[in-house]
């Protein structure tokens, strides 16, 4: 629906909220990349920047929540307008969560730099981050351009992110079993991998919101999941 509202202030309200969502998206993508880069380069300063930056993301989320509540109350939106508002609320919630994951990763940078390192994991984390921020960026593009095909493409990619996490999980478990001095770094890196994987889930949720917003129909709940670590044991899976 591209037509303008007869009440043009309604369009301005909607545009202003959407602009905030996009700004939030930009901040979150950067936070995710910076957090993993800070980890790889043991850059404590960059990690601190990510931690501080989360406040701006949270503040945007709060503003969006207030403005959407106001719009619901004052304009009583229907049909596509209602779905836009509902999607905005959900998407800004997802972005806020991803922001928290980035902050959580950044928090672990100082600790990890002080313990024995596990070689080879950073490359895998970087590739996974690259993959997941790619999903996020496409999910936000699909939302802005109302592009259902792109949104479905994002949801289709989620199993691959899960797969990357599985591989990392197994590799970290192996390192920790081989040498108990790896356990400290291994535990932290595992949480980081899990955070990145969860960020992928939220990117997928954003893409699903796009599909709902455009078509009015929620995509099938039973999308394929490839995270198998919930049933992994040392005996059967390693």
């Amino acid at each position: 629906m591209s037509g303008k509202h007869i009440v043009s202030a309604f369009d301005r309200d909607l545009e202003s909220i959407q602009a905030k969502v996009m700004r939030m998206g930009g901040l979150v993508e950067a936070a995710m990349r910076d957090a993993v880069q800070a980890l790889e380069t043991s850059d404590v300063e960059l990690a601190e920047k990510v931690r501080q930056g989360d406040r701006a993301i949270d503040a945007l989320n709060e503003t969006i929540r207030q403005e959407t509540a106001q719009l619901l109350a004052l304009r009583a939106p229907n049909a596509i307008d209602l779905r836009v508002i509902l999607s905005v609320m959900s998407i800004s919630g997802s972005l806020e969560r991803i922001g928290d994951y980035a902050k959580n990763i950044a928090k672990r940078v100082t600790v990890i730099s002080g313990v024995q390192q596990i070689n080879g994991t950073y490359g895998a984390l970087r590739r996974m981050t690259h993959f997941v921020t790619g999903m996020l960026s496409d999910a936000l593009d699909s939302y802005i351009q109302r592009d259902v095909d792109l949104a479905r493409d994002v949801t289709d990619r989620d199993p691959e992110a899960d797969q990357m996490y599985n591989t990392l999980f197994r590799s970290l478990l192996t390192h920790m079993m081989e040498d108990h001095r790896n356990i400290a770094a291994g535990m932290h890196l595992h949480f980081i991998a899990k955070n990145i994987e969860r960020a992928g889930d939220h990117a997928t949720a954003i893409a699903e919101q796009t599909v709902y917003m455009v078509t009015g129909i929620k995509p099938d709940e039973d999308r394929p999941r490839a995270d198998t670590t919930t049933t992994a044991t040392m005996e059967s899976d390693l």
């Binding site: 303008k4 007869i6 307008d81």
Partner: peptide, 8 residues
């Protein structure tokens, strides 16, 4: 859609 969202 246009009518209930205030476009026509």
């Amino acid at each position: 859609e246009s009518y209930i969202t205030g476009r026509i």
